[in-house]
């Protein structure tokens, strides 16, 4: 396993801080409300220690404040939290990596870049840019080319890329379940089930696609981690990290979000009972349903298939 560097740990705390602000906003916390550590650690699927580190980052930004009697409260109205949380990890390498990644996923920067061009764009030192690129390269998002340039690898930034990702996962994920040695951590299943059920309790129109993506990637990463095949495990985990960082799919209707999470729960049930063949089949169904996408190009006057274009 790759050793976790200090900058990676710090980067994870920044990510967690952002995740906490998302949860705070989604669950309707108001200014002055206590933010329960236990609830947040459960919702984020981490222990309380990193939650405390994330609180410190948010405290620096005045988003939360420490209570005299212990714990943290929300220090701002929710509208301000939304605006300020965008700048949470500012001026850090982790933040720079996120900004580069986000700009690439939103097609602001090109496929190949030099460190100096990025350093000009972000008004950052060459060493900060280089460190940011190294963080991204550990997730396979950029590769250093011979010479000084860095090239971005394919991302999940367009509907076609998402289609290809699903086709790739359809080949591997059921096999990851069926490979000899598949083992599940039932405690993790419990946490995942609880997070999913909590999300499902939200009313229509309040199902955030960002939170769905977190839950979805966590579920599929769990499947990968549990696989007995080391290569399937590695490749799928890297792919889920790529999805989490770059997939910006906001086109899923509430019904399908719920249906998709119900499918996760069904697969978890089968895994707990060690009915692996059934779970693998359910995974095929789940991914195939996710493959059905809206037509991209339709219009009045576009002739039925086979009749050609209107004269």
């Amino acid at each position: 396993m790759m050793p976790v560097s200090r900058s990676n740990t710090r980067q994870n705390h920044f990510k967690l801080a952002r995740q906490i602000t998302e949860i705070v906003l989604e669950r309707g916390f108001a200014e002055g409300d206590h933010l329960p550590e236990a609830m947040l650690s459960q919702a984020c699927g981490v222990s309380r220690t990193p939650v405390r580190s994330a609180f410190k980052i948010l405290e620096d930004k005045n988003i939360v404040r420490r209570r005299e009697e212990g714990g943290y409260v929300l220090n701002q109205p929710p509208e301000k939290v939304a605006a300020d949380s965008a700048a949470v990890p500012d001026d850090m390498e982790g933040s720079l990596a996120e900004r580069i990644l986000s700009d690439r996923a939103e097609r602001r920067i090109a496929d190949v870049h030099s460190v100096s061009a990025l350093s000009r764009r972000y008004s950052s030192s060459r060493s900060s840019v280089l460190n940011a690129l190294k963080i991204l390269s550990s997730d396979g998002i950029v590769t250093q080319l011979p010479g000084r340039a860095w090239a971005f690898q394919p991302m999940l930034d367009t509907p076609n890329a998402v289609d290809e990702s699903l086709a790739f996962r359809l080949v591997l994920e059921p096999q990851a379940i069926l490979a000899t040695g598949f083992q599940v951590d039932s405690q993790k299943i419990g946490i995942m089930r609880q997070q999913t059920e909590e999300f499902l309790q939200r009313p229509d129109g309040k199902l955030s696609s960002a939170t769905f993506l977190h839950l979805d990637c966590a579920f599929h990463s769990f499947i990968a981690e549990s696989s007995g095949n080391r290569f399937a495990r590695g490749v799928l985990l890297a792919h889920q990290r790529l999805r989490l960082s770059t997939q910006k799919d906001v086109s899923i209707a509430d019904f399908r979000l719920r249906q998709s999470l119900q499918e996760h729960l069904g697969i978890l049930d089968s895994l707990e009972r060690m009915q692996l063949q059934l779970a693998a089949d359910q995974m095929v169904l789940h991914l195939r349903r996710s493959q059905i996408r809206k037509p991209q190009a339709i219009s009045r006057g576009f002739r039925p298939p086979g009749l050609g274009v209107a004269p």
Binding site: F255, I292, R293, I298, P304
Partner: peptide
């Protein structure tokens, strides 16, 4: 219409 399937299923 052909080619339009999935649009309505996504809404349930």
């Amino acid at each position: 219409h052909p080619g339009f399937n999935g649009v309505f299923a996504e809404y349930g």
